[in-house]
C-alpha cells in the first residue's frame, strides 16, 4: 500500500510501543531468572546486578521439574498421535464423502473446542476412578485428545477440500482401494497441514492446566501443574527459580511458534484463513 511518511511514522511508533509492552514481561522473567533469591525480591527492583545461572541449575537438577517435563512430553505426543490417527481420516470423510448429518457432525466436533472443560470434568473423574485411569499418563492423554481434536478435524478438512479431487479418482480408476489412495496419494500431499495441526495440538496440550490439575496428583504431573504449585508457597514465592523454570518450560514452544508461524495462522482460525 502506498503510504505517506506520516502514516508510516504512526504505524512504526505503534508497533514499537506494543512490541515493548509485549516483550517486557518476558524480558523481566529473564532478568529475574538470573538473580539470587535476595536480589529477586529486592526493593526497589534491580536492573543491574551480577547475573548467575544458579536458578537454571537448580531447576534442571530438581526431580520435580524433570518428571513434569517428561510428563508434558509424553502427554503432548501421545494425545497428538491419537488425535491425528482418529481426526485426520474423519476430516477426509467430512471433506470428500457426502453422508447424512455431515454438517451436524462437523459442528459437534467444533463444539469440543468451545466447551469449557468444567462441564464434563465431574463425570470424567468418576469414570476414571472406576477404571483406574486417575493420575495416570493414559488418563491425561485421553483427556488432552479433546483439546486438539477440533483443530485437527477442521484444519485438515479445509486442507483436503483444497486438494483436487482428480488425484484420488485417478488412483481408484487405476484399481487402488479408496483407503490406499488416501494413504499413498493424499496424506503425503497433506504434510504441511499435518505439521500445523500436530504443532498446534502439541502446544494446546503442553499449555493446559485444567486437566492436569484435576486428573493427576502424585504419580503424574505436567509442567503447568508443577509450575502452578511448586514455586508458589503459602508465604513466599521463589521468583528467581519460578522465572527460570517458566522460561525453560515455555522456550521450546516459543521457538516452535515463531518458526512455524505461517503454518499456525491457518490452524488458529480452524481453516477460516488460508
Amino acid at each position: 500500500m502506498h503510504s505517506t511518511p506520516f502514516a508510516r511514522l504512526v504505524a512504526y511508533t505503534w508497533l514499537w510501543l506494543c512490541t515493548l509492552v509485549f516483550l517486557s514481561p518476558i524480558a523481566w522473567m529473564v532478568l529475574q531468572s538470573l538473580k539470587t533469591p535476595i536480589e529477586a525480591i529486592a526493593f526497589p527492583p534491580r536492573f543491574i546486578f551480577s547475573p548467575t545461572l544458579a536458578n537454571y541449575g537448580a531447576v534442571l537438577s530438581s526431580d520435580g521439574f524433570r518428571s513434569a517435563l517428561l510428563g508434558s512430553l509424553i502427554i503432548g505426543m501421545g494425545s497428538v498421535a491419537i488425535a491425528l490417527a482418529t481426526g485426520v481420516p474423519f476430516a477426509y470423510a467430512l471433506a470428500r464423502c457426502d453422508f447424512p448429518g455431515r454438517k451436524e457432525l462437523g459442528h459437534f466436533i467444533l463444539s469440543t473446542k468451545m466447551l469449557p472443560a468444567i462441564v464434563i470434568i465431574v463425570p470424567f473423574i468418576q469414570v476414571y476412578r472406576h477404571i483406574g485411569l486417575l493420575d495416570t499418563y493414559v488418563g491425561v492423554v485421553i483427556a488432552h485428545v479433546l483439546l486438539s481434536l477440533a483443530v485437527v478435524v477442521w484444519v485438515m478438512r479445509g486442507f483436503f477440500q483444497a486438494l483436487p479431487r482428480e488425484l484420488e479418482e485417478a488412483a481408484v480408476i487405476d484399481g487402488a482401494s479408496r483407503l490406499r489412495a488416501f494413504g499413498v496419494i493424499i496424506l503425503p500431499l497433506a504434510v504441511p497441514g499435518l505439521i500445523t495441526v500436530a504443532a498446534l495440538g502439541f502446544i494446546l496440550s503442553w499449555n493446559d492446566l485444567f486437566f492436569a490439575l484435576t486428573l493427576t496428583s502424585l504419580n503424574v504431573t505436567t509442567l503447568p501443574a508443577f509450575l502452578g504449585t511448586q514455586y508458589v508457597g503459602f508465604l513466599a514465592v521463589d521468583w528467581g527459580k519460578l522465572s527460570a523454570a517458566g522460561l525453560l518450560a515455555t522456550l521450546p514452544i516459543m521457538l516452535l511458534a515463531v518458526g512455524l508461524q505461517r503454518f499456525l495462522i491457518r490452524g488458529l482460525a480452524l481453516g477460516a484463513v488460508k
Partner: peptide, 11 residues
C-alpha cells in the same frame, strides 16, 4: 507480537 500467545498461561 505472537510470543505472549506461546507463553504458557500459567507462566
Amino acid at each position: 507480537l505472537i510470543l505472549p500467545m506461546a507463553l504458557m498461561p500459567v507462566v
